[in-house]
Design a binder for these strands. Structure first.
Lengths: 338, 338
DNA sequence: ATGCGTTCTGTGAACGCTCCCAGAATCGGG
DNA sequence: CCCGATTCTGGGAGCGTTCACAGAACGCAT
């Protein structure tokens, strides 16, 4: 027998044309709202479209036009979507706002395995998108290579080292970390620890570097613990470990708000008062910050703006305009936790 | 002058063919790993591909094959992605796991405006995806109509009323809410309140209905407050309002874990002990639950499984197999908060 | 009548690929 | 040495559009 797949054949532009007693070209003009089609013809085509149930095949259209009207947004760290990191959501929404206004479709592609990585690279290279925003890339990312390879218009959110040429939009993690650590030291603390995370990413490295810079002579490697992800759980664990090592510490810089929230819980469970006994500061100014008691002093980073600007960089490239890298401003939000 | 867009022409299969001194057909066979191509030819083609820098144009391929190898995942409530609701992330990852294994590309489309809604509907109908998973749809959703219209294989996560015919995978919110409320009553409480949320969605309505059913004669409309979203903030606010109305209440069912976390903060700030003075239960068993002190008693819902099963339903339809709606099991996780 | 500009319509030629069929080359067995 | 089966290759047809061009129809001034 035949295949079991007997999907009903879709109506094409030709079906509409013969139903309306007109030609392909005229139907195409009506569908695309072009000039030079008579009122009679327009009505006849519209009636025929309804009658045969026509909807345009975008694949064929994209093939001849050599563009897709879609921009990919690649998320390399889907697990952070889940629990701790509200930044990705804001970036997504920011990018969507810009692209939607320019009538582009944002398509998000997540990479959760080696297999995904290859498939997404194919997707990007295959002409299915006109450009890409790449979030939380790692150094030597196969995606970055694929993008470079074919010259797909792209922009990074964040600034992975080792990939030149592709524009990015980022914040100065090191400077911001230095600023908030300095502010914490300004409250008179001298034994300040750090819970460092995600050292495989530029953001993690830079926040640690900024901390060291601010600490200067006070820096003590024994007061730094390292964890792979920016999570509440590692914040809790990290704080417990630090308290074991140095029960007399009087300040902590947590690499993100989620980490800070975990650390605060550990501190309070150990019977210490925040900020009286130990001052604590975070990073991101995410919804975590206002949720802590006391509320968290932290670095505000404009996550939605990161998404917006990255999208704008991609659109600029598509339009042949200059697309310079950009570093956005951060600020210290000083609240009750230190 | 000419257009400013002077994108470099991509190498096509024909370029490879002439570079290798072979035909289109042979190149295609090599690229797709088919049989009946000599070792010599294969080597020559592979060398030529490298030399001319060929990568396949998926748009052309999809046009002739009449399929895209992609499945859309539509998120109608992107803001919940941001802050409170970890479910969407789990659903996303679950769906991706299934689709990735079947070598389909998951593309997520978010709807954040009326404009988005139309564009996404076009995307789905235009042949750019072979099927769709639809998350958190509302009744009378234009997307649902578009999907039905063209018979795109699709599945809902959750069960919006008023849209028959399209399979779904859901949990029994009413039964689960009834079960956990009954359990809370079983600890000897008699003045139990509810913070109800998202009554414009089936999940919100059903959780409230389950609460009423469990309360029976004890149900008091004055002990229910209603809010639009499942958020920490509304939990805080709702609890404060309830304490104002009935300072002597001794139990609360919060419509989600995030809401419960907010409520717990309000309770503790009012000087009440949890669970001694007031028992509190939530819904979702998200990461919030373990983060509360005491840890939250809640309903465990298998969010990643929802995504997996929905993806499987879509694949089943594509393959012409039956795709029955499915209701997944939930269970009560009993911890310290009640 | 003739010419010219405008509006409208039809049609061939792509876009880059896969599918299919015809035919060439190769091989082993009678 | 021929024949049939098998392996391999080339190229026409077609997927559903858009685009460019040619020509028809029409009005209006010459």
């Amino acid at each position: 027998m035949e295949s079991t797949r007997t999907r009903i054949r879709r109506a094409t532009i030709n079906d509409v044309a013969s139903a309306a007693g007109l030609s392909r070209g005229t139907v195409s003009r009506v569908v695309n709202g072009e000039r030079y089609v008579s009122e009679d013809a327009k009505l006849a085509v519209e009636e025929a479209i309804l009658r045969v149930g026509y909807v345009r095949n975008s694949v064929a259209r994209n093939l001849v036009r050599q563009e897709s009207g879609a921009i990919g947004l690649i998320i390399h760290e889907p697990h952070s979507l889940l629990f701790e990191d509200p930044n990705i959501g804001s970036i997504l929404l920011g990018a969507n706002a810009v692209l939607s206004a320019a009538d582009y479709q944002l398509v998000s592609l997540i990479i959760d395995s080696e297999r995904d990585s290859r498939r997404v690279a194919d997707y990007l290279q295959g002409g299915l998108v006109d450009g890409a925003v790449i979030v939380s890339a790692r150094a030597s990312d196969p995606i970055a290579l694929a993008v470079k390879n074919l010259g797909v218009p792209a922009a990074f959110v964040g600034h992975p080292p080792g990939i030149p040429d592709i524009p990015y939009v980022a914040i100065d993690n090191a400077a911001a970390a230095e600023a908030i650590t300095a502010r914490l030291l300004g409250t008179g603390r001298t034994r300040v620890a750090m819970i460092a995370c995600a050292l495989d990413r530029d953001s993690g490295q830079d926040r640690l570097a900024g901390f060291k810079a601010a600490m200067g002579d006070l820096f003590d490697p024994g007061l730094v613990v390292e964890y792979p992800l920016y999570t509440y759980g590692f914040g809790l664990e990290g704080m417990q470990e630090l308290l074991r090592r140095r029960p007399d510490l009087d300040g902590v810089f947590a690499a993100s708000d989620a980490v800070a929230a975990g650390a605060m819980t550990a501190l309070q469970e150990s019977g210490r008062q925040v900020p009286e006994d130990v001052g604590i500061v975070g990073f991101d100014d995410s919804s975590w910050a206002l949720r802590c008691r006391p509320q968290l002093s932290t670095v505000r980073q404009p996550a939605d703006l990161l998404g917006k600007r990255a999208a704008e960089l991609v659109l600029a490239q598509i339009r042949g305009l200059p697309s310079p890298a950009e570093v956005l401003e951060t600020s210290v939000m000083w609240r009750g936790s230190a």
